[in-house]
Computed example of a mutant assay.
Amino acid sequence: MARIEYSDPAKHNDRTRELLGKNRNANIFRMMAHSPSYLEQYCRLGGAIRHKGELDPIVRELAITRTGILCEAPYEIVAHKRIGKNVGVTDEQNEALENWEAATCFNEVQRAALAFTDEIVRRHKPTDATFNAIAAKLTPAALVELQLSVGFYIMTSKFLETFAIDMQPVTEVVG
Rank of each mutant, 00 (worst) to 15 (best):
residue 112 A to I: 06
residue 138 L to M: 09
residue 94 N to H: 01
residue 159 F to C: 10
residue 90 T to Y: 08
residue 31 M to R: 05
residue 111 R to H: 08
residue 174 V to K: 10
residue 33 A to P: 08
residue 48 A to W: 01
residue 60 R to S: 07
residue 70 L to V: 00
residue 74 P to L: 04
residue 6 Y to L: 14
residue 53 G to M: 01
residue 137 K to H: 05
residue 12 H to K: 11
residue 86 N to D: 13
residue 131 F to S: 03
residue 101 E to S: 04
residue 127 T to M: 06
residue 118 D to M: 00
residue 3 R to Q: 14
residue 141 A to N: 08
residue 142 A to E: 06
residue 123 R to H: 09
residue 19 L to G: 05
residue 80 H to N: 06
residue 62 L to T: 01
residue 97 L to N: 00
residue 60 R to Y: 10
residue 7 S to C: 05
residue 64 I to F: 00
residue 93 Q to E: 11
residue 88 G to A: 05
residue 137 K to F: 07
residue 144 V to P: 04
residue 161 E to R: 00
residue 101 E to Y: 00
residue 5 E to Y: 02
residue 107 N to R: 09
residue 110 Q to W: 02
residue 75 Y to V: 05
residue 15 R to M: 15
residue 44 R to D: 15
residue 53 G to S: 09
residue 121 V to M: 00
residue 122 R to Y: 01
residue 151 G to L: 04
residue 174 V to E: 15
residue 92 E to S: 07
residue 3 R to C: 14
residue 42 Y to Q: 13
residue 80 H to P: 10
residue 23 N to P: 03
residue 19 L to V: 09
residue 101 E to T: 06
residue 72 E to C: 02
residue 40 E to D: 15
residue 67 T to E: 10
residue 112 A to E: 15
residue 34 H to W: 13
residue 89 V to M: 12
residue 103 A to R: 05
residue 21 G to A: 13
residue 5 E to Q: 12
residue 69 I to A: 08
residue 24 R to A: 12
residue 10 A to N: 07
residue 153 Y to T: 02
residue 5 E to H: 09
residue 60 R to P: 13
residue 139 T to Y: 03
residue 57 P to W: 02
residue 55 L to S: 04
residue 173 V to N: 14
residue 83 I to T: 10
residue 102 A to P: 03
residue 27 N to M: 06
residue 34 H to F: 05
residue 15 R to D: 15
residue 17 R to K: 15
residue 89 V to A: 08
residue 31 M to Q: 14
residue 46 G to Q: 09
residue 125 K to L: 13
residue 116 F to Q: 08
residue 112 A to G: 10
residue 96 A to T: 04
residue 146 L to C: 02
residue 170 V to W: 08
residue 1 M to L: 11
residue 90 T to D: 05
residue 48 A to K: 00
residue 121 V to D: 06
residue 10 A to T: 10
residue 119 E to F: 01
residue 20 L to V: 10
residue 35 S to D: 15
residue 163 F to C: 07
residue 24 R to F: 07
residue 22 K to C: 00
residue 69 I to F: 08
residue 37 S to I: 12
residue 121 V to W: 08
residue 27 N to T: 10
residue 49 I to A: 02
residue 95 E to H: 04
residue 66 R to A: 04
residue 166 D to G: 04
residue 88 G to W: 04
residue 63 A to I: 07
residue 69 I to G: 09
residue 167 M to K: 02
residue 19 L to T: 07
residue 60 R to C: 14
residue 157 S to Q: 11
residue 53 G to P: 01
residue 154 I to W: 03
residue 158 K to V: 14
residue 29 F to S: 13
residue 79 A to H: 07
residue 94 N to I: 02
residue 160 L to S: 12
residue 55 L to C: 09
residue 86 N to Q: 13
residue 157 S to V: 02
residue 24 R to Y: 06
residue 33 A to N: 14
residue 115 A to D: 15
residue 71 C to V: 08
residue 138 L to N: 09
residue 144 V to H: 12
residue 50 R to T: 14
residue 35 S to H: 10
residue 34 H to E: 10
residue 149 S to L: 03
residue 127 T to Q: 07
residue 2 A to K: 00
residue 98 E to M: 01
residue 128 D to E: 13
residue 55 L to M: 03
residue 64 I to W: 02
residue 147 Q to R: 13
residue 4 I to Y: 06
residue 69 I to T: 08
residue 26 A to E: 15
residue 75 Y to K: 04
residue 52 K to Q: 14
residue 89 V to Q: 07
